[in-house]
Every structure is written in C-alpha cells, then in structure tokens.
Amino acid sequence: MSFTFRHLLGTEALSRDEITFLLDQSRAFQGIQKQPLKKLATLRGKSAVLAFFETSTRTRISFATAAARLGADTMNLQAESSSTQKGESLVDTVRTLEAMKPDVIVIRHAASGAPHFVAERLGIPVINAGDGLHEHPSQGLLDALTISDRLGRLDDLNVTIVGDIRHSRVARSNIHVLSKFGGRITLCGPAMWLPAEMPGMAPNMRIEPCITQALPGANVVMVLRVQTERLREPSLPPDEYIRLYQMTPARLALARPDAVLMHPGPMIRGLEIDPAVADSPQSTVLEQVTNGVAVRMALLYLLTGGAPSAATPQAG
C-alpha cells in the first residue's frame, strides 16, 4: 500500500485501503505514547503552522503535541489574535504564513472548503483540522483507530450517532470512514438536526428520531456535543433535549453489551451525556484523545515526507 496524496482534506476521498494504511501507520505511533521517552527527532528542522481561524483547544494541542513528539517546531495562529480580525483575506493570511517556509499547514476554518481553497493555492501539504460543517478527517481517523482497538475490527459495524448531526463535521468524517467498511449508520436526534438528505451520503444509512429505536444492535454509539447556542434555533429547551436524547445508562444498555461509547469532546456532562455513561468502562473518551496524538503524528510524518519510498538498497 502506498500513500499517494499530498494533503488530508477529508475522509470522503480516501479509499478503504488508504484508511487502513493510515491506521496501520498510526499504530506504530501509538507505541511511542507508551515509551518513557516519547520525544523523537524524526522531523527535526521541520515546522508546522497551526492556523486555527476558529477557536479550538483540544485539536490544536493534539497537533502541537504530535509535532513536538516528532521534533518539529510549530507556529501558531489563533483566531482571536489574528490579522483576519483586521480584515485580511484568507489567501493573504496563508500566503504570509507560507512565506515563513513551514513544511505543512494545519488549518481550521469556519468556512466549509477553506482547506481545499488553501491547498489549491499553496505549495505545501495542508491538513484539514475542521472546516465549517464539512469534515474533520483526523477525528474520523482517530475514532476509527479507537473502535478497531476496542472491538478488534472495523468491518460491518452498526453505528448510531446521536445529537446535532446537521452541524457536525465529526459525524460526516466518521460516516465516510465507517461506511467504507460496510458500516450501517443510524442518525438520531431532534428533527431540526437531522438533514433529510444525509442518508444519501452512504449506503445503509437511516434516520431514526426515537433514541430507543436507534440504539438496539449498535456496536458503536457516538454522542455529539450539544452546542447550547444552537438550542435556540428553533427553540428546544435543554430540559427537553435531556429528556429525549441524553445518553443515560438505561439507554446505553439498549446497544450491544460490548458497544463502545464515543464522544469527540468537549463533553457537557448532564446535557448530552450522563456522567455515569461518560465514566463507564464502555466509554472511550480518553482513548480517543490519546489516539488523536498518534494519528496526527502519523499524518505529520507522512505528509512532510510524501509517498513512502522503496526501501533504500543498502541501509547501513
């Protein structure tokens, strides 16, 4: 298997083999998280720009940790303090960043497609760290790695995603990954957050607004964060959301007994998830975070080096 692309803009365009390859590479980096000395010099002298035009804590720290572990330097752009606040266009901002000669740019932006727009205009690899309502590919990959670690496989899984599907790029990246492995995906949540056209994204997808109908048989249950500001459009009181959709122990018990419970974070305990579920042995919340660093190390390593070469004829 070879790695033939320059950027990671989404999981939609990845083939099943490419995803398998990326997960295999990530596993090698999982091992490094367990070493007493986690810092490598592999990408010494290389630098990554972390251009977060939208605020982020965990994804930005995860990429920064991954880069640091590989010995690469990072340069940070944060929305609050950036020149975009002063009216600079996206293309001017990223060209300025490119002029500082980084080897890779990691970009998060509120506009869907912004990383693609940047990738077309810059000469360096671009990693999408979340664009608008479109994709968050490294999250899709780290979730797949976590599932495969826990369940021992990725094939033919029943996956139930609960919450604000409409606004979730995490859901979209996961759907693209898991459906390529034959996943049967059920989307569950308030009608206003379930786009009727979404089942067209992949085969074997269905919408089920009733949570007790959505969970039976699930191997994987993904709970999405409720963005409280979105509860106002149109209005759905938080109490009502909790009553209808909060992941409680009783609801989780409807899924398969070995089902994994995932949440991309940050969690709001007591809103979309009952603390007893968040802390249950089925929960993979912290494994997802640890795996995120491994996946991002693999991505930075592969993208700053391009496609894998044939083994050198005579290593020493």
Partner: peptide
Amino acid sequence: DITLYRDDLSLASAHPVVQSTE
C-alpha cells in the same frame, strides 16, 4: 523498527513506512 530514528529522512524524497517496535 528504526524508521523514525533514521538520519537520512531529509535526504529521501519520501518517508518510509513505519512499523511497530515490539
């Protein structure tokens, strides 16, 4: 697996596939 410790990664046009250390 010594891939990540190689000193010739910057000379190679591409990074070799990493395997696990066990």
